[in-house]
C-alpha cells in the first residue's frame, strides 16, 4: 500500500504538481476540469486514466495535443470503465506472476465519464465493472445533459429542464422524467464505496477520493458539474451554482460504504430554497411562469423527501 498524500489545508494542497494541463478546449468556467484536478491532485501515485466520449474527452485530446500528464486512454462512448478495468486486471495478473518491472509502484485506476456515458450508454459496462470487483474508481462528471452534442436530454436530466430534445414551450415544460438515482443503484452492487461530491467542497471531495483510493474494490463517485452552456449561466458563476446545488440539497453530499452504511458528509448551515437554485439557471426560466409554478413546489417537496430519506437511512445504518 502506498502512502496517502497528506492534505491538511488548501495551502498545502496548492503545492501539488498538476497532471492536467491548461489550454484544454473546455468552455471558460467549465467545472469538469476543476473536478478532474481535485481528483488527480488527491494522490501522488501513478495514474491510469480513461475518459469516455464526452466534453472532457474531446476537449482534452485535440490533435496533436493532450492535456493529460498521465497514461490516458479513450476508446468509445460506453467502455471507458472497462478499458481501465482491463488495465487493472492485467496489472493484477502481472503482479501475481511477478513480471512487473517496477512492482513497488502502485498505480491508481480512474475512469472519467459524463452523465450520458454513465447513466445511459455505458450503464451496463459500469455495472459489470462494479459487479466483477475491479480495483477501479469511476468518476461521473454529472452535468445533467449531453452537453458535447448540443444539449440532448440524458437520464440524469431533472424534471422541468429545457433541453434540445425536450424543449420547453407553449405545450411543454421540458423534461418530464425525474433524475436517475445513480449513487444508490451503484451502492446496490454492494461495492465498497459510492459517494456524491461537489467541487466547491474540495476538502470533502479530496477526503472521499482518498478513501476511494485506499479501499480495495470498485468505487463510484458522482460529481456535480455545472455546465455554463447548457444550464445557461454566466461562466463566472460556476462556483456559485455549485454552492446553490449543495446548499439547496438538490445535490446532497453523502457516501455509502459497503452498500449499506450511509453517511451525510455535508449539512448546510442555512438551507437555501430550491427556487433560488432554479432561478440562477436559464434552463429553468420557464418554470417561473404562472402555469408552471406548481413544478417548483413539487421540486421542493421532492428535495425535502430525499433529504429526510437520507437522514433516516443514516440513523438506521441499513
Amino acid at each position: 500500500m502506498s502512502e496517502m498524500k497528506n492534505i491538511k489545508n488548501l495551502k498545502e494542497f496548492s503545492t501539488s504538481a498538476d497532471r492536467f494541463e491548461g489550454a484544454n478546449l473546455l468552455c471558460p468556467g467549465c467545472a469538469h476540469s476543476i473536478i478532474v484536478r481535485e481528483v488527480l491532485n488527491a494522490t501522488n501515485d501513478d495514474l491510469v486514466l480513461s475518459a469516455s466520449t464526452g466534453c472532457l474527452e474531446v476537449c482534452t485530446a485535440v490533435y496533436p495535443y493532450t492535456s493529460w500528464d498521465a497514461s490516458w486512454i479513450h476508446i468509445g462512448f460506453e467502455n471507458g470503465s472497462t478499458a481501465v478495468a482491463g488495465a487493472e486486471a492485467m496489472y493484477k495478473a502481472l503482479k501475481t506472476k511477478g513480471r512487473l518491472k517496477q512492482p513497488d509502484r502502485n498505480p491508481k485506476f480512474v475512469s472519467f465519464a459524463g452523465d450520458g456515458a454513465s447513466y445511459d450508454i455505458g450503464f451496463q459496462w459500469i455495472s459489470g465493472c462494479m459487479e466483477r470487483g475491479h480495483n477501479i474508481m469511476h468518476v461521473v462528471l454529472d452535468n445533467e445533459v449531453y452537453a458535447n452534442t448540443g444539449g440532448q436530454r440524458s437520464s440524469s436530466t431533472p424534471i422541468g429542464s429545457s433541453t434540445t430534445t425536450a424543449p420547453s414551450g407553449r405545450k411543454s415544460y421540458g423534461e418530464k422524467k425525474n433524475k436517475k438515482d445513480m449513487v444508490s443503484i451503484m451502492a446496490s452492487h454492494h461495492i465498497p464505496y459510492s459517494a456524491q461530491v461537489a467541487p466547491n467542497k474540495w476538502k470533502d471531495m479530496v477526503k472521499k477520493i482518498q478513501y476511494g483510493f485506499s479501499v480495495d474494490g470498485p468505487v463510484f463517485i458522482n460529481a456535480v458539474s455545472p455546465c455554463t452552456t447548457e444550464w445557461k449561466f454566466d461562466p463566472k458563476d460556476t462556483m456559485l451554482l455549485t454552492d446553490l446545488a449543495t446548499d439547496s440539497l438538490v445535490f446532497p453530499l453523502y457516501e455509502i460504504i459497503d452498500g449499506h452504511e450511509l453517511n451525510i458528509t455535508y449539512r448546510p448551515k442555512n438551507v437555501v430554497p430550491v427556487e433560488e437554485y432554479l432561478a440562477a439557471q436559464g434552463r429553468f426560466k420557464h418554470l417561473f411562469k404562472d402555469e408552471y409554478k406548481y413544478l417548483i413546489t413539487e421540486w421542493q417537496e421532492r428535495v425535502d423527501a430525499k433529504w429526510a430519506m437520507l437522514q433516516r437511512r443514516e440513523e438506521a445504518r441499513v
Binding site: 468552455c27 471558460p28 467549465c30 455554463t228 462556483m239
Partner: peptide, 29 residues
C-alpha cells in the same frame, strides 16, 4: 488556485504568484 478550471493560477511554495495569461480563458471564477 483550486477553483481555476484552466490551471492558470500559479502557486509556488504556498504563495500565489500570478496568473498564467497564456492559458487563462477569462471566465472570472
Amino acid at each position: 488556485w483550486i477553483y481555476c478550471p484552466d490551471i492558470s493560477i500559479i502557486a509556488r511554495d504556498k504563495k500565489m504568484v500570478g496568473v498564467d495569461m497564456d492559458h487563462c480563458k477569462g471566465c472570472g471564477i
